[in-house]
Design a protein around this nucleic acid. Structure first.
Length: 314
DNA sequence: AACTCTCGCAACCGCTTCTCA
DNA sequence: CTGAGAAGCGGTTGCGAGAGT
């Protein structure tokens, strides 16, 4: 008649269960998870109880609060430094759990992968759907691409200037790069590279502060490209310095030169950041503030980017 | 209005590491 | 030292909500 003692409940937690779990923690602290079930308090595994506590019930969690820009930055940099050590990364982000960080990262990666994949000529069929061609004016391109291991040398590679508003944002460092993907199928366009033009001052600053990486090149734009304001905004984000971190370093956490990262252990107050009006009311994209480059990539941002010849052709 | 797609999130699974008898 | 159980961690899955068609 009554449910078997062995029956283990799964799925979403009820408020009553949460209450039982909270009471248990009040009495015994966040441990002895298995005893919750063995005492018959809940028909959940200890593992499940622990997870529920850690991810949802623990005090001071920032549930329902989007990652602030600063948090994004931290995650990107720490992921580059530590790899997928979500629990470790989460310790730098008070109020965030490893699950939060993991979900944040994977969803952004997925979005980015989709966007980049849609840039591939072979997959262009799937990209037309949502938006019109973005407006983005390439003013000119200069010099031919060169490949070298030196960033200084790279700075003379093929670059493009553009008329988007990013040029007015001194915070924006103007390089984007793509990951050195170890999955050959990640891009079907043969790892063509991207690079945007630096103005000299900022470029020099960037060069001084960044590791040397092989810079992808922005494919030669077709003349007269016009991108929507939305895409211009996106493209401006692509020039965020942390874009470089994410792609250039994220895949090489074990590199000995992780010291090139600019951050150290906990260095900001994400709670404050979370509770700021901008973070809470969704206005964090206020153009007056540093942008969050991950947000809202238009699906077809790379629609007009042409395939480059593979480096072996150069 | 119905359907599809994408995203964010919660929770589970399986493996590894830790603790303790 | 060793083995069993507990705890921790990273990867994956499933679902609901919202936006787009």
């Amino acid at each position: 008649m009554e449910a078997k003692k062995e029956e283990i409940r799964k799925g979403p937690w009820k408020a009553e269960e949460d209450e039982v779990l909270i009471n248990h923690v009040k009495k015994h602290g966040p441990r002895d998870w298995s005893s919750i079930r063995s005492k018959g308090l809940l028909h959940r595994t200890g593992k499940s109880c622990r997870l529920r506590w850690v991810n949802k019930l623990r005090p001071n969690l920032k549930n329902g609060c989007k990652f602030s820009m600063e948090e994004e930055r931290v995650v990107i940099e720490l992921q580059a430094q530590f790899g997928n050590k979500w629990a470790k990364i989460a310790t730098y982000l008070p109020g965030r759990t490893d699950n939060d960080v993991k979900n944040f990262w994977s969803s952004r990666q997925k979005r980015l992968a989709r966007i980049l994949h849609s840039a591939a000529p072979s997959s262009s069929k799937s990209q037309k759907v949502k938006r019109d061609v973005p407006a983005f004016h390439y003013v000119h391109s200069v010099e031919a691409p060169t490949f070298s291991s030196s960033l200084e040398e790279e700075s003379s590679s093929k670059v493009h200037s553009c008329s988007s508003s990013y040029t007015e944002n001194p915070e924006a460092v103007r390089i984007m790069t793509l990951p050195d993907m170890d999955r050959p199928d990640f891009f079907s366009f043969d790892m063509n590279h991207f690079q945007l033009e630096l103005d000299h001052t900022e470029k020099d600053m960037f060069i001084e502060s960044q590791p040397q990486v092989s810079f992808p090149q922005i494919p030669e734009p077709q003349s007269g490209l016009i991108f929507s304001p939305e895409s211009q905004e996106l493209l401006s984000r692509l020039q965020d310095p942390y874009f470089l971190d994410m792609f250039g370093q994220a895949r090489a956490p074990e590199l000995g030169n992780g010291s090139q990262l600019s951050i150290g252990p906990p260095f900001y107050d994400p709670v404050v950041s979370c509770t700021s009006a901008a973070a809470m009311d969704g206005s964090s994209n206020n153009p007056a503030t540093p942008f969050s480059f991950f947000d809202d990539f238009p699906d077809n941002v790379f629609d007009q980017i042409e395939k480059l010849p593979s480096p072996s052709d150069w």
